[in-house]
Amino acid sequence: MLPLTQLGGFLVEMLGYPFMQRALVAGVCIGIVAPLVGSFLVHRQLAMIGDTLAHTAFAGVAVGIFLSNLFETNVSPYLTALVVAVLSALLIQVLSEYTDVYNDVSMAVVLAGGFAVGTVLISLTSGGIAVSINQYLFGSLSTLTRGEVEILVGLSVLVVAAIAVSYRQLVYVTFDESAARIAGIDVRLLNRLLVVLTAMVVVGAMQMMGVILVAAMLVVPVAAATQFARSFKRSIVLAIVAGQVAVLTGTTLSYAYGIAAGGTIVLVAIGVYLGAAAVTRLGPVRMR
């Protein structure tokens, strides 16, 4: 165990680096919005959609890089990822409205298709972009730019505001879709809103978490909170707490030991989940 003064010195040093400041701001945002949106996804058995959208976002990144190369301009891969992920989200949603189910198979097809388009486009792009692809796949702390963090903060404010306004309706639809429809709620509109918000969260968090792991932040903190929470409101708060613990601990460990940030954050989140599961099963813990 580090002596306290040494730990303090370590934290001061870490917080002194602008790239770590950016990473922590980004992490806090991710730790809020991902569990927030994830709470609605998980309890509608839509956990899979985050992963699917992350992979289509990867296609979006590739489109950005491809276009930049083709026209020798600077198209932000972030922006193209956002556009492609939002369009994919709406496409999946509209398809499900026509077929009346969220189909596991079609979701898997879109997921694989998105990733395939991404790899093909990248292989068509000449020159040394392999490095930056790794960064999108696995995420990175050090390459977050100020602009990217600003976009993430902006997206987060938008997501929180949208959920605050539609919270009651979202809860009703999550709990009982048919009854919500009969209660006069525009279920179709809300479903579209939810998938678009998911796309925004996934793209916002992708830079730091990586395409492959970003969806975990939508699911794992929520799974942990569900063990304890009695009310839905409480479950959201607890999920965000779990998200913050994962992000802040994971980012710090990643910095201290030079290990992959996305992976570390997800492992801490899973640790929190397992701890929650163990505590609720072993001890007579009152639900909160």
């Binding site: 309890h43 709990f175 009982d176 009310s231």
Partner: peptide, 8 residues
């Protein structure tokens, strides 16, 4: 449905 959803 709604089996696992935490809601009072």
């Amino acid at each position: 449905k709604a089996g696992g959803m935490p809601v009072t």
